[in-house]
Design a protein around this nucleic acid. Structure first.
Lengths: 228, 228
DNA sequence: AGTGCAGCGTACCGTACGGTACGGTTCCGG
DNA sequence: CCGGAACCGTACCGTACGGTACGCTGCACT
């Protein structure tokens, strides 16, 4: 509600030329961070004029917002939930989303964009952060929450508050990886698939129903086995 | 262009006058973000001259590094582990650290500093991020890990890899709160004590030994004597 | 062909910032 | 009382960046 009129709502789409420009800008951002993302630099990298940049995106902040919405629009590949039932199927679907989440969060572009939004966020005001949360986290939360509630309807999971359960699952999957990456740390040998499987397993141990937790007591149930 | 030898290792200490200046700089950063942290602005806010800033801290980056080490040196309040034994005592100690962690992470200065370091981190290079990880996370990890291993020695906990267990505990405590805060979100009604108690409870359900997991089954009690 | 529009490239402007230099003041040791 | 060191306040410099203006080219439409 507080968004000034110039802020993008994220629903807009851009011409192919503009997409190419945004792609160049993202590359520039990934490469050199925010301070490499000058209007002159973007114009040079994209072979366009600064005047066009300002015509298309208003000002520099508009360009940044457009970069976020553009990037998030590219990731919009949501496979429809399969109708499979049962604990194994649910675990597999959860693990799939978890792997996807981990890979997205660790991606160069995502990290650069998050750094950008975080870097310019202040006390109360955080225009880009809002955009990023809306476009980046909301979809994941929606998908995971839907899956969790489906699992609850099947009596495979037992939890009271969906949002709370989702957050715990998120914590188990991501832990401190995201912030560490944002701070410049490199994830040493963290295998996304392994991490995801372990997180899902732990989540089931916490929120699985008794009759379904039983057979999984021997921690190996979740398909993927830890090698260590 | 690589870091000049002036980069702080973190062990240095500053004169009272310099501490006051750093305090002013932190206030400025908290208030207006990185772009409010100009050398002229710091000098004005601290009633010192720019020349002194450059003499004391080398350049702007040196000032930023000094701010981080200074702030971390202030938080160095580590209560010695009490010798109490048993599951309840361990849980209480873990919860205490967890609450402390949550409060620190959500603090204005911590958030501002993390935003600063993240905002200027790039692909490989992340001078400030390294400093922040070294001074901010390492101590917490050390304390928590020591506690976890003590619990394992007492046969209260069962885990193979301490670092893995620590990370899972961290994920259960913090979840996505940190990144959300960094992005400008406000934690709605997340009560640190409540969150910490729940995380510790969940952690025990995952890694507590069988004989000790039993009594905790009634998940509401969980020994939060802190009435948070 | 003529006309208008979109866009490229470049030049330009104002400002803000990092960093340096300098004069004036306070304080301390001798 | 003297000399110097530390330091404040301010002025100054060069540069870089956001934003604007302008001239030119190519294309679409009639």
């Amino acid at each position: 509600m507080a968004s000034p009129p110039s802020i993008a709502t994220g629903n807009e789409t851009y011409s192919p030329r503009q997409n190419a420009v945004l792609e160049s800008a993202l590359g520039l951002l990934v490469e050199g961070g925010e301070r490499a993302l000058t209007t002159a630099g973007v114009a040079r990298a994209a072979n366009c004029s600064k005047e066009s940049l300002y015509k298309w995106f208003g000002d520099r902040d508009g360009l940044l917002a457009a970069m976020i919405t553009f990037q998030s629009s590219k990731v919009k590949a949501a496979p429809a939930a399969s109708g499979a039932r049962g604990r194994a199927a649910l675990a597999a679907q959860l693990a799939g989303i978890a792997v996807n989440l981990l890979k997205v969060l660790a991606g160069d572009v995502s990290l650069a964009l998050n750094r950008l939004a975080i870097g310019q966020a202040r006390r109360g005001e955080a225009d880009l952060g809002l955009l990023l949360r809306e476009h980046g986290r909301k979809p994941i939360e929606t998908r995971l929450s839907a899956l969790l509630e489906a699992g609850r309807r099947e009596r495979l999971l037992d939890f009271a508050d969906t949002r709370e359960a989702y957050r715990t699952l998120y914590g188990l999957i991501v832990r401190d990886m995201h912030v560490r990456l944002l701070l410049g740390d490199s994830l040493d040998g963290e295998e996304p698939a392994k991490r995801a499987a372990q997180a899902i397993d732990e989540f089931f141990r916490l929120f699985g129903t008794e009759e379904n937790t039983g057979p999984a007591r021997e921690r190996t149930g979740a398909g993927n086995e830890r090698t260590g």
